[in-house]
Amino acid sequence: MNGYLGVDIGSISTKGVIIDENNKILVSEYIWTEGNPTEAVTKLIEILKSKLPNDLKIKGIGTTGSARKLIGLLLDANVVKNEITAHAIGTLSKYPNTKTILEIGGQDSKIILIEDGIIIDYAMNTLCAAGTGSFLSSQAKRLGIEVEDFGNYALKSKNPVKIAARCTVFAESDLVHKAQVGYLKEDIIAGLCRAVVLNYLNNVGKGKKIKGPIVFQGGVSKNKGVLKYFEETLNEKITVDKDSHLMGALGVAILSKNNKKDTIYNLNIKNIEFKTKGLECNGCANNCEILKIYKNKDLIDVWGSKCGKTFK
């Protein structure tokens, strides 16, 4: 049997799926990136391997997410693709009628508009990470609860507080203030979830025609509070797949299947020593930040040089 591996390495979490020829997910895994994508992927692959049926041959590997280039190199992937395309393809394989994809991840949030199975427009947050998963998890830590429980707390609230939705810094000072004057924790959390929704619709969704069927995905889609306020604000039923966090990985696995060559991957990366080394080149006034990538002590790639100078 043939399988295809898709890996989505985000800022917060690393997701992996292995699919069969019919795009069915055979195994999947979701772990924290913890600031070290290579280690996270090594761990991820080991977990996936332990769950695999014996007769499966991996014939394609695709990577997406913010560390897609680095991990693509590590895994020798045949497809390295941006998150927008990967997510749209993943979602469309499960919900071919989708017209709008709302996505909130660790530091990106995006909206993808689709017509007849073709992406016609998208928007991504500007480089500011306001209202994304990393904001929610830092607030969870501050309030002393697990980010996974956020949704349940929010649903308990009858009176969500008003929180400035524009900017994380203002939102945080609002939050501190509301907590200090004695608002209930669940009301603050519900207010936070609503602020995430309003921030998203005002920034990313600005000026876009959001039509149903709508699919909501990315890590934050697991948060029932955010989902509730999306449905309330948009006045539409929104689908959240049980694998909504895996859509990017699924999409890029499908892309690698469509792009397959006659290679069989063995996935033995545990014993490969993969190291990156950053340095500042002082060869000219550009002072480029150079990243050298080593595989088993061999230099396999160098990034960041503006002039194309070779490094040893």
Binding site: S66, K81, N82, I118, I119, M124
Partner: peptide, 17 residues
């Protein structure tokens, strides 16, 4: 990187159209 992600997906969309 952030700019490249946006450009790459923009090109993808145009090529699909």
């Amino acid at each position: 990187t952030g700019i490249e992600t946006r450009l790459e997906s923009f090109i993808d969309i145009l090529e699909q159209r």
